[in-house]
Structure formats: C-alpha cells, structure tokens
Design a protein around this nucleic acid. Sequence first.
RNA 1: GGUGGCGUAGUUCAGUUGGUUAGAAUGCCGGCCUGUCACGCCGGAGGUCGCGAGUUCGAGUCUCGUCGUCACCGCCA
Length: 632
Amino acid sequence: MGGDPITTSILRIPNSVKFYRDNLIIIKGCKKKFPKYTYFRSLIVTYKIMYRTHTCGELRIENLGNEVTLSGWVQRIRDLGAMTFIDLRDRYGITQLVVDGDSGGTVTEILPELGREYVIQAVGKVRERSNKNKNIPTGDIEIALKEIVILSPSIVPPFTIQDDTDGGDDIRMKFRYLDLRRDAVRKNMELRAKMAHAVRCYLNSKDFIETETPVLMKSTPEGARDFVVPSRMNEGQFYALPQSPQQFKQLLMVAGFDRYYQIVKCFRDEDLRADRQPEFTQIDCEMSFVEQEDVLEMFEGLTKYMFKESLDIEVGDFPRMPYSEAMEKYGSDKPDTRFGMLINDITETVKGNNFVVFDSAGYIGAICAKGCAGYTRKQLDSLTNWVKRPQIGAKGLVYVKCNEDGSFKSSVDKFYPQDDLKRWAGITGAAAGDLILVMSGKKGHMLTALGELRLEIAKQLGLRDKKSFKPLWVVDFPLLEWDEDSQRFHAMHHPFTSPKKEDIPLMDTEPGKVRANAYDLVINGVEIGGGSVRIFDSGLQAKMFKLLGFTKEGADAQFGFLMNAFKYGAPPHAGIAFGFDRLVSLFAGLDSIRDVIAFPKNNSGRDVMNDSPAPISQEQLDELNLIVKDIS
RNA sequence: GGUGGCGUAGUUCAGUUGGUUAGAAUGCCGGCCUGUCACGCCGGAGGUCGCGAGUUCGAGUCUCGUCGUCACCGCCA
C-alpha cells in the first residue's frame, strides 16, 4: 500500500476502543498518526492497540527519561493528598506510578475512580525516585503519570492479593483465579512448567517418543476405583478414565516404539489426601530391551537433571535399599533418609524379665531420639498419647532416659536393672543425653508405628529439612500381597510385574516370598514414583494370573488384547511412572500437591470454584439412557 | 466408612465458670495530608455467632443432630 489507505467505503474506529495517545493507532502500511474519530475511506484499515511497552518488572535506572506504557493490576493506592502513589502489578513485578501536580487533567480525573485490582494502562515518563525502595527490583525508578486508562474495573476482592494474604484456604480456592495472581502461588506453577520442560528436554535427548494415549478407555476392576463415562452411542456401556496408561504403553513396546514417555493426566476415584487428588499428573515411561538397572540409571539421570535445571542442586548417586531393609529399619516402604533414628529389633534382648507386656509380644522395637533425655513427663505423656491414637493404634510407649552421669531412668525400672538398660543403649546406639523409645506388639504393626513415631520426633526436632534432598531407590519389592478380605493374593505393583528369576520356583511353594523386579523412587519420605520390569513371556503371565485368582476366561476378558499382542513378538521391556505433582510440591518445599495444581479439588473431591460435580439435566440423562437413584 | 480440629464483621481472629448493647486488626466508605512504599491522622458503616433441635430464667459459650472445611485411618494394583 503506502500513503493513506483509501477505498470507497467509510470506516470509523469503533467507540469501544479508547485512544489516549494518537501514536497508538497503527495503520497497516501507513506511518501517519491519526487523532480520535478519524474517518477512514477503507474497509481494510487495521489498527493495533499497544497495551504496553514494558512489563511492570523490567524498568531500571537505565530507562530514565523513557516514555513508557505499562498495563497491569492496581496493587495499592497511597493517597497523600496533593500526591498519589499507585503500585502497578503484573506477573513480572511491581512498578510505582506517581500522580502529582504535573500530571495531566485526565489523570486526576480518573484517579478517584481507581480501586484495588483495577486493570489499568498507564503512560508516563521514567524518573528517578527521591526515596528509593531497596526491596523491589524497580525500586530506583517510578513513572510520572501523563495518561491513565481503566481497561477493566474490579469489585473489591475478598482477600488481599499479596504474599502474606489475609485469605484462608477456603476462600482462596473459591476465588482461585485471584489466588493465582499472588506471586507465591504463581511461582509454584512456574516451577511446575520449568520442571515439565526439563522432563521433555531430557527424555527427548534420550530418543524417547512422546505419545498420547486414550483418556477414554476400558474399566478394569483391579486396583483403584475407576471414574466412568457413559457412552451415548453404545447404550448402557461405559468408558473408564485411565488410572495409568499402563497397558497402552506396553502395547507401544510391542509396536516397537522402543522408548516412550508422556506427561499424562491419570484418574482414581478414591478418597483424597494432601498428596492425593482424583486427577493427577504422571511422567509415564516405558523402555524396550532393558533390565531393571537400565531403567534406574535412566531415571536417576532424569531426576538429577531436574534437580540441576530447576533448583540448581547437585544430588549424589541414589542408594539402593531392599524393601525388607526399609521395613525393618525405617518401618516404611518410603523411608525418609535425611536423618538416622533407625528402628532396632530388641525382641530377644528384653524378653525374660517377667515384664508381661514384653514377654507376650511378638516383636519389640526401639528407636533412639538423640538429645531427648531431657524430655519432661508432659512431653513423654504427649508422645504416648500420640502413639495411642487410633491412627497409630499402639498400646503404649516405654522410655529409657540415658542420663548425663551414665545412669538410666526408665518407665520399666521395676523389671530391668541398669545393666539391662545399658545393653539396650548399646543396641540402639544411645549415648548420654539420648532417649530410647520402645514399642511392643505384632511385628508388622509395630514397625509401622515406630516408623511413624520416628517421623513425628524428627519433625519435632526439626530434622525434616525441606531444603535438603535425599533420594533413594527402594528395590526388591514382594511380588504379591496377601489380602485378608478377599482371601487371595494381590499384585503389589500390578499383574504384569515380573518376578525375580531366582524366585520363580517359589511361585509354586511360597508365593508370598517371591520378590519382584519392581522399584520405587523415594525422596525425603515421599513416594515419587515406581515401576517394574514387565512379564513378556505368556507362560509366566498365565502363571501370574493364576496366582492372582483369575480364571483363564477372566484374564482374557480383561487383558486379552494385551495378551494377544504379546503373541506377536513382545520385546523385553520395563517402565516407570513418576507422580509429577508430588515431585513439584517436593521441589517447592510444600506439603500439599494442591499448591502446585492450578485448579485443584478439595478434600471431598469438589471444585469449590465452579461447584462441581453437579447433577445433569433430565435431557442429558435420557440421552444416555441413565436413571439416577433417588438418594434423598 | 471411621477419628479428630475448625466454623463469630468482606477477611483473619479474640470472646472468661452460660449473664448488660458480641470485640480487635485489616479491608471498605467519607474527610485531612507533597515522598509514600504494611504511608499517617480523624470519622463512619458493616454480624441470622454455619444450620436445626434441646437443656436453661438466660446460649456465641453446654448437649444432640446436620452441613461445610481441613488433617489423618480405612481405601489408593
């Protein structure tokens, strides 16, 4: 074009566009600037509003004298009478705007209308502050306002949009879009994005193919409850949302993809926790022609890469701990190894002193709390009550204080002379000033209870440092788990997990003792992920299904398509999945994965912002041929 | 399904053995103020004490139920 755009039609710039500076009208192919209400003889006039020349976080002393345009939210207005300061906020920071005697008439006209969280556009000149603010990066400068436009007004927000907000969890979730304006919350989401990026960089560089698998799939009764979706076209039939893309990724191995990954939403219709949401995100992977060690190396590498890229932390090689050791020493399959306080089996040492509680117990275990000999009666009572709560369910707690003078004071002095207590101290590694805590009962239960007590004391002693990261692999999980309710074995990981080669004979004799080629990544007592080497031999798979109590027909109905696929040449393969939300919350030093999910569900699985789930209309039900039982 | 905590102003909370008109801070509205940045000062409005029963002369307070919310146990291959 060139020159004024001219055709026969007449077009006026719409009134809804507010022009406060004529140079913000840009006509394609035309450098001339036009005042408001210019009539153009053209149909193809295009214009562009320049909302900002800079963000609210980038102006510095070097920009002195620049004419700038900023857009953002009004964080705070400080009206000093003849002078007003406005903090303008966007994602990138806060810049101070100043209105004083030199500001134009339109500014002073609009100023009284402004309130918190108004979206405004501000035009002015960068100048040096006479009083600088060292607390913010833009604190050396301010914008002397010349023009102001209200782009969008705001009603008074229900809580303050700042790091130390006055809003509680409830109100913040209801207005999550306002909560997400806060630096502290948005930074979690930025970390999440950064970590997802790191995952893709690393796995792409290792020749993994990112592949999407279906969200609408088939329900399987194994494992967690499925979320189901009724099918309109297939009356009376339902899809299920995937608990994980397990079978699809194994099929991709049969397809010869060799290396697959996906950052994928998974769904489980179970009760929620701080670290459990009904929909959550996994980093899901599978590899062909690999052994357990190959998978561990690859994903140890990924984890280290993520630590380096997102937190700039170098973590050392991850130790490997057998499941049995984790249970015996930490009372948990996800041990927190940031501190010691290991569990010691003192069953044989303490029996035979006519203390009925111990003599009748199957297992007696002890932990040593360093430097806690000074605990008062009140503190010990409160610990005892803590382990007696139904959630732990211990009968009681025996203590031994290792006094500074080398003597011992215990709650069982009547039964155990000093020499016995000294022997306990020897086993548990307790020195002067330490406190030994002992629990007795059924072995499995006590290990768990001692494990919980260990974590609780560590918390009280401040040993669970969120800035310190101690990853490890827990390996050699049992293949099967006996379920009392259904009186049958369950797969501890899933039915496709391969047993250790040397343990295969045990499948016929002592199935409970068979170890699996299964592994978990644990960091700071959080189960970050797990996986296994899969069965690719149909004979072994059939044996596994039999152990799990499947009939041939049952197994065919549920997993037939996978078993069929395996008949066409399945490569040896293994895989792993990381809980991405947990990993992000761990990196961010947060206890709840809700804080790293943009729009999370509450404790009851509800979205309090849009009030879902909700009933659907009769028309929708009719179309799906569904009848909802009257539950009132 | 179970155990426990919480529910009082827009928000965060206090509220004594049950006793006068339920308070504070902050936010909001109005006024004053030229260097604030958690601005300051003066004034004002704002409450079905989650809801429903019960005990009592009298309930924010005690009891029972219910709803909401959070944490945990069960559950989550």
